[in-house]
Design a protein around this nucleic acid. Structure first.
Length: 466
RNA sequence: UCCUCAGUAGCUCAACGGCAGAGCGACCGGCUGUUAACCGGUAGGUUGCAGGUUCGAAUCCUGCCUGGGGAGCCA
């Protein structure tokens, strides 16, 4: 018969070409409605957000009664003629000549053709990619990962794979996961009774990375413009919709560049990612706009054409004090901005993304460059409505003696980061970079407000299923 | 880790001290164009776990477990 094996995506993009032609499509049943003499299957083959309507008729199928009883989730291969149906809700459908059962799905299949709560779907994370929301979300995640690489590669950045296991424990970026092969019941001990890590696999204490930044700095001082994009691990006991123990981070690092260049890059990147998704994920974004966040498309389109706000920490504190907003925690120079303050800035005062720069040195990391006022450092956070902080970055302290002094303030021993200080000793130049939480970007761009829903199999405190 | 809300049928929820219920889903039947189809019927329960109060507990009390939201930490 000469059936051509084909995907739903090919049909969506080129239906006319296949009109009245015999085609074969394999996929999973999303919904099956039978009547006396005919029935309809909504078939998803994963190639496109849309399902394909299969029409099957008693007089054309030898196994009609079997097909009519096929449950949601079953895998089938359908062969038949493609019919254009411009007057119907779907633009085309398959008139089935043959429906072959590839994999049955019994009646206790948990995903039903009805609304499910996100909490329930998290418990069946192995099946949830078969639902509309997660089909859309994980395709967007895939597209966004590609867009990140494309953005940097087009600009000539070099991608480096920073190590996932590291002995850098002096960064203060959060609680770490220890990596060890020692027997937890019977570890080797030193003479004074402590665990003897010189006996461990690497001969020293090691942990999973909390950031690829330090390694990226080394590469930036060779390639000038670099980025890392990889997994990151934090053992924080954080119970919020914005925190995970394992997440992915994008960390560009640029040499011969200052904080302004850094913000320019971050803003350009966010706009690029939005533009990319609006173009390449039109159906998915329209779905989010309709069922997740009604104002999503309008807001994202607005952001592409708007300039991000750039204010200093000092100006932010003044703006908050002037706002007459009632805060649970008082606003004051020297105190870190609370979540409620950040929300006020981005959701009530400016209604768009806001860079806050030049924070007091005491509340920021040791590697951030000290400003001329000696009180603030060249830090920048990007705050967005709904999600909060999605980017944290800074110009790095390139002056060796200033960096050593800062490290002393933070109780970091120079010998622990000798190689990092070397970068200032040999051809050190001003440089800057930032970290973008990949999942937070997905949340912001989809409107889905829980990080556990934008990670295929999320790892959070007390939860490591699948 | 702290504060707070909630765990009842496969799912979403009602019953709030006195017989365990509905919608959806599943199953069976009907229906000649459905599309979260529609119509009729059937099955489905250790009310998160452990203890306590009471003649009587899904309901009140205590502890624990799990999940949601808020805070802190941050991306």
């Amino acid at each position: 018969m000469g059936m051509e094996k084909i995907t739903v995506r090919q049909l969506v993009e080129n239906a006319e070409e296949y009109a009245d032609h015999p085609v074969t499509v394999s996929g999973w049943i999303r919904n099956n409605r039978d009547q006396k003499e005919f029935g309809f299957i909504a078939l998803s083959d994963g190639s496109h957000f849309n399902t394909l309507q299969v029409v099957y008729e008693k007089e054309h199928l030898t196994n009609y009664s079997q097909v009519a009883r096929l449950g949601v989730g079953s895998a089938v291969t359908v062969s038949g003629r493609l019919a254009l149906t411009p007057q119907a809700r779907q633009p085309f459908e398959i008139k089935a000549a043959e429906v072959i059962l590839e994999g049955d799905s019994p009646e206790d299949y948990p995903i039903q053709p009805k609304r499910h709560s996100r909490e329930f779907l998290r418990e069946v994370a192995h099946l949830r990619p078969r639902t509309n929301l997660f089909t859309a979300l994980f395709r967007v995640r895939s597209l966004l990962a590609f867009a990140v690489h494309q953005f940097f590669q087009e600009k000539g950045f070099v991608c480096l794979h920073a190590p996932i296991i590291t002995a850098n424990d002096a960064e203060g970026a959060g609680e770490i996961f220890r990596v060890t092969t020692l027997d937890p019941k019977n570890p080797p001990l030193t003479e004074d009774g402590n665990i003897d890590y010189s006996e461990d696999f690497f001969g020293k204490k090691t942990n999973l990375t909390v950031s690829g930044q330090l390694e990226a700095e080394a590469f930036a001082l060779a390639f000038k413009d670099v980025y890392t994009f990889g997994p990151t691990f934090r053992a924080e006991n954080s119970n919020t919709p914005r925190h995970a123990a394992e997440f992915w981070m994008i960390e560009p690092e640029i040499a011969f560049a200052d904080l302004q260049d850094n913000m320019d890059l971050a803003e350009e990147m966010i706009k690029y990612l939005i533009t990319y998704l609006l173009d390449k994920a039109e159906v998915e974004m329209a779905f989010f706009n309709q069922f997740v966040d009604k104002g999503l498309l309008e807001r994202l389109q607005g952001i592409v054409s708007a300039e991000f706000v750039r204010i200093t920490y000092t100006e932010a504190v003044e703006a908050l004090q002037k706002s007459k907003e009632k805060f649970e925690y008082p606003v004051g120079w020297g105190k870190d901005l609370q979540t409620e303050h950040e929300r006020c800035l981005t959701e009530k005062i400016f209604h768009k993304p806001v860079f806050v720069t030049d924070y007091p040195g005491e509340i920021k990391a040791f590697y951030m460059r000290v400003n001329d006022d000696q009180k603030t450092v060249a830090a920048m956070d990007l705050l967005v409505p709904g999600v909060g902080e999605i980017i944290g970055g800074s110009q790095r302290e390139e002056r060796r003696e200033v960096l050593v002094r800062r490290m002393a303030d933070f109780n970091i021993h120079p010998e622990d980061l000798k190689w990092y200080l070397d970068l200032r000793k040999y051809g050190g130049v001003k440089h800057a970079g930032f970290g973008l939480g990949f999942e937070r970007a997905i949340m912001y761009l989809s409107g889905v407000n829980n990080i556990r829903d934008v990670i295929p199999f999320p790892r959070t405190v007390n939860s490591c299923e699948f």
